[in-house]
Amino acid sequence: MTAPTTFAPTRPVQRRSTSLLGSLYAGNARSVMHRGLLATKSTNWLVVMSGFFEPIFYLLSMGIGLGALVGTVETSTGAHVPYAAFIAPALLAVAAMNGAIYDSTWNVFFKMQYAKLYEGMLSTSLGPLDVALGEISLALLRGALYAGGFLIVMQVLGLNLAWTALLALPAVLLIAFGFASLGMAITSYMKTFQQMDWINFVMLPMFLFSATFYPLTVYPEPIQWVIQVLPLWHGVELVRGLTTGALSVAMLGHVLYYVVMIAVGLVFTTKRLRALFLD
């Protein structure tokens, strides 16, 4: 058989902009996402499902079980809500976070250190921003799936107290995007498994203490500040406001926090990919 056509001497070379963005972004993050979706065919679905059910188990055991003892709780805006309806939005934010983190940390670490996947991608016409956006979108998608499923469970259990709960859907997308973006950025700087364990080391206390299971006011003020610096608390407050219908201006601040988080994550991931694979 004959060799395939390769040589095309008359084909003009496309010139795109010479701007910095031109060398970082080819507008084809879609293809990176498509690759990720194809590859998930071979993932361990048990692990995927366990990540989905974890917050649901918390909701059932603590919300329903513990809730019977606790009664109602006062939210940061002063509303009184049943305990299950108090923790459900927090766990919704956690579901989004877990899904996003699952892909953007360990999976990315493996691809970066062992699979040489990004090296291959960056020898094509893709730029580092395409790779970052594609991978982050994939992580975001998993976060959105986890959270979407959780939101349905909340609806069935009657824990969405206001119509604004509908807005929790875009809110969890934002939260998943934020965690995916920052997660990949941090992971891209990690070199060893031990360093990766630090991520878990931060995640667990953040999950437990970010006004997830009780109001922030139980802490002394300095500790409150620390928690307010970390991302999960902003997600919890944002979603809780929406599902309980207790809206406040502070929610705009939470949205802004995530917008910044997404931007910072994208910038650092792109920089790092460039430094590693386009030195």
Binding site: A26, E119, S125
Partner: peptide, 24 residues
Amino acid sequence: NDHGPEVRSQLGVVPQQDNLDMEL
């Protein structure tokens, strides 16, 4: 340096170490 993606779009690359996608 200025046209990374465009240059790469015209090249075929076989690196010294295979970096095939093992998940596909």
